[in-house]
Measured scan of single mutants.
Amino acid sequence: AEKTGIVNVSSSLNVREGASTSSKVIGSLSGNTKVTIVGEEGAFYKIEYKGSHGYVAKEYIKDIKDE
């Protein structure tokens, strides 16, 4: 049951290796980017990222929809 969301930041949002603010940053997404959410862990969504997965803070994702 995948969902999509939109990155809701003015600059960019860090994509992390794990569901923690201390996890390594593996990339970033600019505002209004559409993401595919494959799961959630605590305050983070697990998303599809560059052929693999990454984690982003839930508070910066809006317009969550079921695909």
Rank of each mutant, 00 (worst) to 15 (best):
A1C: 07
A1D: 11
A1P: 12
K3G: 05
T4M: 08
T4V: 11
T4S: 12
G5C: 04
N8Q: 10
S10P: 09
S10M: 11
S11A: 10
S11C: 08
S12K: 10
S12D: 10
L13S: 04
L13P: 07
N14V: 15
V15M: 02
V15F: 02
R16K: 07
R16L: 15
R16Y: 15
E17I: 11
E17G: 08
E17Q: 14
E17V: 08
A19P: 09
A19Y: 04
A19N: 04
T21W: 12
S22M: 11
S23G: 05
S23P: 01
S23C: 06
S23N: 04
K24W: 04
K24F: 05
K24L: 10
K24P: 13
V25F: 06
I26T: 03
G27I: 03
G27N: 02
G27Y: 04
G27M: 04
S28P: 04
S28G: 06
S28F: 12
S28N: 12
L29S: 01
L29Q: 02
L29I: 15
L29M: 05
L29K: 01
S30E: 11
S30Y: 12
S30N: 12
S30F: 12
G31F: 15
N32C: 06
N32Q: 14
N32L: 10
T33I: 10
K34T: 13
K34S: 07
K34P: 08
K34C: 06
V35D: 00
T36P: 03
V38M: 08
V38E: 03
G39D: 09
G39V: 03
G39P: 00
G39Y: 03
G39R: 04
G39S: 08
E40S: 07
E41V: 12
E41H: 11
E41S: 10
G42H: 07
A43M: 13
A43H: 11
F44C: 03
F44Y: 13
F44Q: 02
Y45W: 11
Y45T: 02
Y45K: 01
Y45P: 00
K46D: 03
K46Q: 08
K46W: 07
E48S: 11
Y49F: 15
Y49C: 03
Y49W: 11
K50H: 09
K50G: 14
G51S: 07
S52H: 14
S52K: 12
S52T: 12
H53W: 09
H53E: 08
H53R: 04
G54L: 01
Y55E: 00
V56E: 00
V56N: 00
V56S: 01
V56I: 10
V56F: 01
V56D: 00
A57D: 15
A57F: 14
A57L: 15
A57Q: 13
K58H: 03
E59Y: 09
Y60W: 10
Y60E: 06
Y60I: 03
I61R: 01
I61M: 05
I61L: 08
I61K: 01
D63R: 07
D63Q: 15
D63F: 11
K65M: 13
K65D: 10
K65Y: 12
D66C: 06
D66M: 08
E67C: 06
E67N: 11
E67W: 02
